[in-house]
Amino acid sequence: MTSIQDAKAPAGEVVLEAIGLTKHFPVRRRLRDLFRRQHSAVHAVDDVHLTLRRGQVVALVGESGSGKSTVARLLAQLYPRTGGDIQLHGESTRVKGGSSFRAYAARVQMIFQDPFASLNPVHTIRYHLTRALKIHHNAGDDLDAALAELLTRVSLTPPERYLDKFPHELSGGQRQRVAIARALGAQPEALLADEPVSMLDVSIRLGVLNLLRDLKERLDLAILYITHDIASARYFADQTMVMYAGRMVEGGDSETVTQTPAHPYTRLLIDSAPDPDRLTGDVDPLEEDRGNGEPPSLINPPSGCRFHPRCPAAMARCSTDLPVPLEIGDAPGHWAACWLYDKAGAR
């Protein structure tokens, strides 16, 4: 286990960066579209900028269908991108399977949402972890010691009790810990966690989140944490980015984004989160002018700002001009893509 130490660099160094990342999924053409010029596509991710730094957690928050998982898969190079660039330590990377993909995977690993599906049911924990270590040549001389260390890292102790178990013998939380250990087996620099706790029981979610935070501090990992639960982003992440319909709408440090949200969509998201302090009796159903709560179709996304059909503060230019990220000014690095904050353009 030396390469991590070797690769260690000052904290805050950029590990992985997405620049203008775009992904369109083609829609299958029907017969009647055969003679049409344009090809329709699902605009899953458009122009996403994201920076993962060593020793930092960035949360990506959004509702289902907002494209947040697509961002993770693009960063893991599981999908080829349509446009933009992914830079690992400042170098543009594009891999197409084979050895270049393995080399990339040794540095960027992914943890999936469902630990019930991401482990092979016919293999033991030993097999899963051994493969991760051998493929990335991290097994060293003493495989057993390396395996034990991996399991100890994710607090599955004593390791002997877990090594020869099958996934079905473990609980959901333990399985997710094995999935994390498998990702660590590659000794990555960046970890992409796609809703790592949403399938777990509520009482053990925090255990897994605290483990990830602990690992981040000890191994100096850069973590992308994808979630739909903005409260856990506040708890766990240093920075929070909010995504809506394939575009980033707001970003900044987690405390600022959750306490003084700037973009109307972020406000809607925060107002909708369950709040125990707001007891029954004063339930206020959201005003009707916020639309029917449907995210837009991504095949023909709304022009201008994609949130404008649901936005309570929509102005005329919102439906025509695409908002650019604008500095809010209440905290360094807090921005929102919303024309409300365009001071120069204000009449």
């Binding site: 029981d201 009482s203 409260a231 708890y235 306490q259 709040d275």
Partner: peptide, 17 residues
Amino acid sequence: PALRGPKRELAGIPGSP
């Protein structure tokens, strides 16, 4: 984790169901 109010360290429940 709370969305409002002071941020506090949370532990969850040890063990599994």
